[in-house]
């Protein structure tokens, strides 16, 4: 969100409203044009990171349609709007304005074509599914693990044997700082020393949309199978996430999962809840 831009837009609309109620009558058509422009400016400049232009075009098409429906909902207003347009086109006193509009619009179109052609072309962008649906089960070290029912075997120690649990946290810490922090970073923000060189960038575990909304078995799958285990909608060919089954034991993976939750303060999503 670019709050400053949005505030300016809202302030401009409010000022216009004030002017319209006090001094001049603005008909519905003009108001709709104002709204259309305001919404466009809000979408194009008020949102950060910027929306792709294709999304803006889509939204503006919906806005245009909605405004048309709004206008045609009241037949008096519709008739008055049609009358305004007709008057602008047929009445002599608008002749100069009409000719200006007729001349300027094609020029704007030509300008748009020019800028489109002179912009350097953009490489194909890949839309990626961040949390793809996991497979029903995986094979880890020759044993099948059912991801729908698998639980972290050391999780219950948190209540039954806190000292043993603390040892798993410590072991997870060791695993993390021997293996993960180069990319996921010291503070688990996905900003490790090598993060800038990989695309997609490493996951930020502090972000509430990553581990906070996932089950531990899901993390086990993503850690054990890494990029090669991803379905194609998640671009397995560019992810730098290693298949940690090649480096770590099952216990080490469960321990580092415990450490991720301990460090960030999040709770894993309970098993059995819909993903």
């Amino acid at each position: 969100m670019n709050l400053l831009v949005l505030l300016v837009i809202v302030a401009a609309l409010a000022a216009l409203q004030l002017v319209a109620t006090r001094w001049v009558t603005v008909n519905r058509l003009a108001w709709m044009a104002v709204w259309w422009v305001a919404i466009y400016l809000g979408l194009a400049y008020g949102i950060n990171p910027p929306l792709p232009s294709s999304i803006i075009v889509l939204f503006m098409a919906i806005v245009t349609l909605a405004l048309a429906v709004y206008l045609s909902a009241d037949s008096d207003e519709l008739a008055s709007a049609v009358q305004t347009v007709t008057a602008f086109i047929v009445e002599k006193r608008f002749r100069v304005a009409l000719l200006t509009v007729l001349a300027v619009l094609p020029l704007l179109v030509a300008l748009k074509v020019y800028t489109n052609l002179s912009n350097p072309p953009q490489p194909p962008s890949s839309s990626r599914t961040i949390h793809p649906p996991p497979p029903a089960s995986i094979i880890f070290d020759g044993t099948a693990i059912d991801l729908a029912t698998a639980n972290n075997p050391y999780r219950e120690l948190e209540h039954t044997d806190p000292a043993a649990f603390a040892q798993h946290v410590e072991n997870g810490r060791r695993v993390y700082f021997e293996n993960c922090f180069y990319c996921h970073g010291d503070n688990m923000q996905g900003a490790g020393m090598f993060a800038h060189g990989y695309d997609p960038i490493p996951a930020n575990f502090n972000d509430p949309t990553t581990i906070a909304m996932l089950q531990e078995s899901y993390l086990f799958w993503r850690i054990a199978k890494g990029a090669p285990g991803l379905p194609s909608e998640s671009t397995p060919w560019s992810s730098a996430m290693p298949a940690w089954e090649n480096f770590l034991t099952e216990e080490e993976i469960w321990d580092v999962i415990i450490f991720l939750y301990e460090f960030t303060g999040y709770e894993p999503r309970a098993q059995g809840m819909p993903h």
Partner: peptide, 8 residues
């Protein structure tokens, strides 16, 4: 950018 190979 060039970074270390950490995957395999």
């Amino acid at each position: 950018p060039i970074v270390g190979q950490l995957i395999e």
